[in-house]
């Protein structure tokens, strides 16, 4: 246990515990941990008002490495437990950390409800498309044909898209980044932190041991520019090594298409501007997949709405205002009474 001595300005190190980090060497989780610690330092977040809640899985070890309050719970249930934390104390700044198995398989139900309720949490889903802690079985985000100990001839079921699921469940903030994008990820995390409500961040994370390079088709340095599009609100949706490719709505169907600026009379003015409050657009961006499309990263959707925890307490307070602070003796004597 590290005692926080409230230094003038906290650095990333001040958010790290003295516990030995026990992820496999080279795991993408290290990069994410570093990013989160850096982000909290940039924000000068109060470690004592911060709680990390996790479920089960490699990612779920996260709280042990954060010098904040932390609760490592049970498989899939961290969104429910975090909801309880916020119901008891809405002032706390609560982060939920889990993997694709934790949050989309065993805990998919809770993920859906925490998003639709818009509980004020930062939810970080480390998606590595595999079960790491149980030694390599395919996961609900694994692509068809994934060979694993439980699918030696290749998986045959279709995967779920985390970001599409989050938008579909009614999430009001849905963003994406990649473990190794150490400039991009902290920006996304900061946006998540600043948003009041359920802020869902899917982080593509490489599992070196069981699913190495599963995202390399869009994360390798050589293909990044062409296979990633970093979206920013109000900015044109442009990507490519020469920054000359862009997204445009097709004229007659609700679909995006890739066009090249300077070809066929296309100018920058023809490129769609990203509007993070546009839910259908967010869904289209979330559904883009290589090789036909680049992977959309950044804040795909942000359209804040009242939070659940806020609404619950507002209602309690409104009733207290209306009826006055409860009188327990009166409550005991409620209804028909008689004297013997």
């Amino acid at each position: 246990m590290n005692v926080q001595t409230a230094p003038e300005k906290l650095t990333a190190k001040d958010y790290a515990t003295d516990q030995e980090v026990r992820w496999c060497p080279g795991c993408g989780d290290y990069a994410i941990l570093k990013s989160v610690q850096r982000t909290l330092a940039d924000l000068q977040a109060d470690p004592e008002q911060t709680v990390f809640v996790s479920g089960i899985g490699c990612a779920a070890r996260f709280p042990y490495y954060m010098e904040t309050y932390g609760f490592h719970t049970i498989h899939g249930r961290s969104p429910a437990i975090a909801t309880g934390v916020k119901l008891a104390n809405p002032e706390l700044d609560v982060w939920v950390v889990g993997g694709d198995g934790d949050m989309l398989s065993i805990g998919g139900n809770h993920t859906m409800h925490v998003l639709r309720r818009n509980v004020d949490l930062q939810i970080l889903l480390f998606n590595n498309e595999i079960y790491g802690l149980t030694k390599g079985q395919y996961s609900p985000t694994s692509h068809i044909g994934t060979r694993s100990p439980s699918t030696p001839f290749g998986s045959v079921d279709r995967p779920v898209s985390a970001a599409q699921f989050a938008i579909g469940a009614g999430g009001r903030f849905v963003a994406r980044s990649v473990d190794i994008l150490q400039k991009h990820l902290p920006v996304v995390l900061k946006r998540a932190y600043e948003n009041k409500g359920a802020s869902f961040v899917e982080i593509f994370q490489n599992c070196l041991v069981y699913n190495d390079a599963v995202f390399s088709h869009f994360t390798e340095k050589s293909v990044q520019a062409d296979m990633q599009i970093h979206v920013e609100h109000g900015e044109p949706l442009i990507f490519g090594t020469e920054s000359n490719k862009g997204l445009r709505m097709k004229n007659d169907v609700l679909e995006l298409e890739i066009v090249t600026i300077g070809e066929d009379g296309v100018t920058e003015g023809d490129i769609l501007l990203h509007d993070e409050t546009n839910r259908p657009l967010a869904m289209l961006l979330a559904s883009m997949q290589p090789p036909a499309f680049p992977v959309a990263l950044g804040v795909l959707y942000c359209d804040p709405a009242p939070t659940y925890d806020g609404a619950v307490h507002d209602q309690v307070n409104a009733i207290k205002d209306e009826k006055g602070e409860g009188d327990f003796d009166k409550l005991l004597r409620q209804g028909h009474t008689w004297e013997v």
Binding site: V51, V53, F71, T73, I74, R77, P79, A80, I81, A82, T83, G84, V85, K86, L87, A88, N89, L92, N109, H110, M112, H113, V312, H313, V316
Partner: peptide, 22 residues
């Protein structure tokens, strides 16, 4: 504060979270 959870597990989970938070 009452919470009608999405299922029995979420209900006990939220109760545990609330106790954790004091």
């Amino acid at each position: 504060v009452t919470f009608q959870a999405e299922d029995e597990i979420a209900a006990v989970g939220a109760a545990i979270g609330a106790s954790y938070a004091g």
